[in-house]
């Protein structure tokens, strides 16, 4: 049984919708031209209570370009592959060391496909659980990566979160970078 838990946890990563890596642009646009959703502090109790799920990052000490780079590097960790088997061979080489990992949505290997068949046995259940697990796993990675770079989180509506996290990766980066480098919000940071 011991061996199954890590496998479950690893499968909790995004299956079909991993972040798509993007090449750093030659020059960033003027942040004034980047449109962002409304992230004005809300007094709606639901927004407050779900702040641990729906939030954006902000660090008033960084520039737009620095925020962009931080997000680019951190979102590189959202690219997933099949679970790392340990013991197993991990090709520690330049692909592991790149600062902005290149890649594309997961290509499932034989092990993963077999496991996915298992998931399909309870597909209805998985359809409910997996999106939440996926969001949670992605959130944990981003929280840890951006948090260690001095960013705090601020609660927003689910709609605003969707606008900032679903869609063209380059546009998401630009929107999040603009908010990431904005002046400190007049709101309490999410701490839970």
């Amino acid at each position: 049984m011991i061996r199954y838990i890590p496998i479950l946890l690893l499968l909790a990563q995004p299956l079909p919708v991993a972040a798509q890596a993007v090449d750093p642009p030659q020059a960033l646009p003027d942040p004034e031209t980047v449109k962002v959703p409304d992230v004005a502090p809300s007094q709606d109790p639901k927004v407050r209570s779900e702040g641990y799920k729906f939030y954006y990052f902000n660090n008033p000490a960084v520039s737009f370009a620095e925020a962009y780079r931080d997000l680019l590097e951190c979102r590189g960790h959202l690219i997933v592959a099949g679970p790392a088997q340990v013991p197993g061979f991990i090709p520690w080489d330049e692909a592991h060391r790149r600062k902005t990992r290149q890649g594309s949505p997961m290509v499932a290997g034989p092990d993963m496909l077999t496991a996915m068949v298992g998931v399909a046995v309870f597909s209805a259940m998985a359809a409910i659980i997996m999106p939440k697990m996926e969001r949670g796993a992605r959130s944990n990675k981003m929280r840890r990566c951006m948090g260690t770079r001095g960013y705090e989180r601020y609660a927003i509506t689910e709609d605003a979160w969707n606008a900032l996290n679903k869609g063209d990766e380059q546009q998401l980066l630009l929107m999040q970078a603009k908010l990431g480098a904005a002046p400190k919000p007049l709101d309490e940071a999410v701490t839970e």
């Binding site: 960790h77 592959a81 991990i90 592991h96 990992r101």
Partner: peptide, 9 residues
Amino acid sequence: YYEPGAGGI
């Protein structure tokens, strides 16, 4: 470094 096979970082 990047480890796409890890559940968390």
